[in-house]
Design a protein around this nucleic acid. Sequence first.
DNA 1: AACGGATTTTGGAACGTTCCAATTGACAAA
DNA 2: TTTGTCAATTGGAACGTTCCAAAATCCGTT
Lengths: 354, 354
Amino acid sequence: MRDVANWNVPIPLLNKQATLHDVARAAGVSKSTVSLVLQGRSSVSAKTRDQVLAAIESTGYVYNRKAAALRQAQRNDLIGVIVNELNTPYSGEVLSQIEKVCFQQNLVLMFASSSDLCEKQERLVQLYMEHKVGGFILCPAPYTDRTWLERIWSSGFPLVQIMREVSFSQLPVVIADNRQGAYEAVKHLIQLGHQKIAFVGGSEEISDYQERLAGYMTALNEAGIRVPAQYICPIPQSRQAGRDGLKTVLAYDSRISAVFCFSDLVAYGVFSMAREMGIQIGKDLAVVGFDDLEDSHITHPALTTVRVEANQYAIEAMNLLRVYQHDRQAPVVRRVVPARLIIRESCGAPQQFV
Amino acid sequence: MRDVANWNVPIPLLNKQATLHDVARAAGVSKSTVSLVLQGRSSVSAKTRDQVLAAIESTGYVYNRKAAALRQAQRNDLIGVIVNELNTPYSGEVLSQIEKVCFQQNLVLMFASSSDLCEKQERLVQLYMEHKVGGFILCPAPYTDRTWLERIWSSGFPLVQIMREVSFSQLPVVIADNRQGAYEAVKHLIQLGHQKIAFVGGSEEISDYQERLAGYMTALNEAGIRVPAQYICPIPQSRQAGRDGLKTVLAYDSRISAVFCFSDLVAYGVFSMAREMGIQIGKDLAVVGFDDLEDSHITHPALTTVRVEANQYAIEAMNLLRVYQHDRQAPVVRRVVPARLIIRESCGAPQQFV
DNA sequence: AACGGATTTTGGAACGTTCCAATTGACAAA
DNA sequence: TTTGTCAATTGGAACGTTCCAAAATCCGTT
C-alpha cells in the first residue's frame, strides 16, 4: 500500500470495485453471510447485519447483477423493448408509459427502434437474447416472418406484440381497436352530412393500417356510400403524407369535403397544406385524426380524433409479459385496447356533440 | 431421448438453453475451441470452424454476454441513458439519435427518465451500476448534488452530462449554446423594432433556463432596453406554460409585442392562447421558440426558432463517452453545440430575412 | 455437565464464459 | 529415427454471485 501523488487529477478514481469477498473480509464474516444480508434474509442476526451494512458502506460495494444472474438463471429484471420508430410522438408516449411501469416494478429496460427494418429488428432481438432479457415487447416491423417470431418464443423468451401484429402468429398481442375507432370516426363524418370522405396516410404493409381501412370501409358501406379507390391515399412519412395526401385527393376530386387521417401527425400535415391552399378546416373541410397526441387539443381548430390510451398499451403489455414469465403455458391472448372518438372542432361538429 | 406428445401446445418450448459446452459436445471439440470460434480467432482451422458453426446452428445456441462479461470485466457494451422526460419531443429526438449511434457501434442502451426527480435519478443510477454499464449519459435533474455526481465518476463509471449541467461539477458535458441562441433570437426581435419583449416558460432550477435568460438579458442590455421583472414568466409545464404565460404577461402589459419562448412547445401554447384571444401571430405578436421541433415548420404561421441539432448531442456525447472509457484520465471537456436562429414567419420578418 | 433443538454462520460447488499455459499433431530438416 | 518448429487444440482456473448441506453457536432443560 502506498500513496500516489496525483494532484493533477481532479477526481480520484477508485482502483478496483469491491466484491462480496471484500465486504465479507471488512465485516469479519463469510461471503455467504453477506449474500444473505443483501437478499434480506431474516436468518441473519441484527448484530451481524449491521456489521455487514457498515462494511458495504465503507467499501463502496456495488452489487453485481451479472454475476447474480449467472447463478440464478430464472430471475431476470431485464425487458427488451423494440418499437418501430422512437421519434414519433405516439411511440414516445407508449415507451414513456412502459418505462414508468418498469420503474415501478424495478425492471430495467433495454430499448431500441427497428426503423421498420426486419434486418435491424432481427439483429436487435439477437443482441437482447445474448443479454438474456426476461422478455420482449415488440412492435413488429412490416414483413416480419411469423416463424422467426415464434422461434423467439419457443427458444424461451416470452414476447408480447404491441400496436401491431404479425398475421396468424400464435403469439400474444396488445393492440388498439383500430377498426372500431376508424368506424366511429367515419360514421361521425357521415352523420355530419359528409359523403365524399378521403382516407389519407399510413402504409399498407402494417396491420393497423389494414384495420383502420376496414373500419373506414365498413362505415361507408353501412351508409351505402361508395368511394373511388383514389380517395384512399396511403403514404408513410406522416406529416408530409398529410400535405401530399390532401393535395393528391383534392386534385382527383375537389368536392371531397372530409378527410379521415391515419394519424394525428398526418392530420397536422393536412392542416398545414389546407392553410396553404386557403381551405378552412372545420368549415370547408372536416378532418379527423387518430391517436390523440398532446398537441391535438391546442391545434387550431382543435383536432377531432380517435384516442387510444398509450398507458393502456404499456400496462396490458407488461401485465401479459409477467404472466408468460411465470407460466409459459398460459393461454395466448389478443388484448384489444379501446379506441374512442374525441369530438373537437376540426369537423365543424355543432357544440352539442362535445 | 424420448418424444413427448404435446399437440395442445401451439408452440413447443425448448427445455433448456444450449451452452458452450453443449455446442462443444455436438461439434466434437472442446469448449475452448468453440470460444475461439465465437471470438473469430484465426488460430482455428477452417474445418473445425465449420463443424462448430454447424453445431451452433443445430443446437440453437445463443451467446451469453452475462457470463462473458463476468470474466472479462473491462469490455462492456452497455450504456445507461437517463433523460429528464422522455415524452417531450426534443428528448425524443435526442434519445432517438443516441439510439442510432449505439446501434451502429453495437452498443446496448439501458434507458429511463428521471422525471426530474433526484431520488428517482439516484435509484436509476444505482440500478445501472449494478448492471455494470460501461458509462452514463445523463441529463441531470434539478438540484442534483455535485458530489454525488462526481462519486459516480470516481467509482469507475464514465459519465457525460447532456443538455444540462450541474454547476461547478468537474465532469464532461455536451450542452447547447443556449446563451448565444437566446441572444440571437432576441436581437432579431429587437432589429424588427420590438421593444417590449417577454420571456415565457422554462423553470429556474435548470442550467439551460439560466443561460437562455442570460442571452435574453444581454441582447436587451446591448440595445439599451430595460424590461420589468414581470416580463419574465417561468412556468414548467411546456404547452400550458405558453398559454398561461402569454395571458400573464399580457395582463401585466398589453403593449408587449413580442415573446421569446423557452422552447417550441411553449411557443405552441402561446400560439394556442393567442388565437383564443384574437391576437394574430406574426402581425400583432412576434413569437420565437427554441429547439426547432419537426412540427415547427408546419405550424401556422411557421415558427421562427433557434435550432439545436439533436444528433450533435448524441454524436458528441457518445464520442466523449468512448474517450473516457478508453482513457479515464483524458481531459474533462465542456462541448458546446451551436444554436442558430431559423427565421420563418412567426415574427413577421420580411422575406429578405429568410 | 450433558443434551436437544433452534438459530446463525459457513465452505464449496455451480452458473457459462475467457484466457493462459500446456499438450498434441503435423511436417520438414538433420 | 530423432529433433525442432509451428499451428491447432485443450484442460482448468478464474470472474462474483447463489444456494445447499453441513457446521457452529446459543440457550433452555434435564
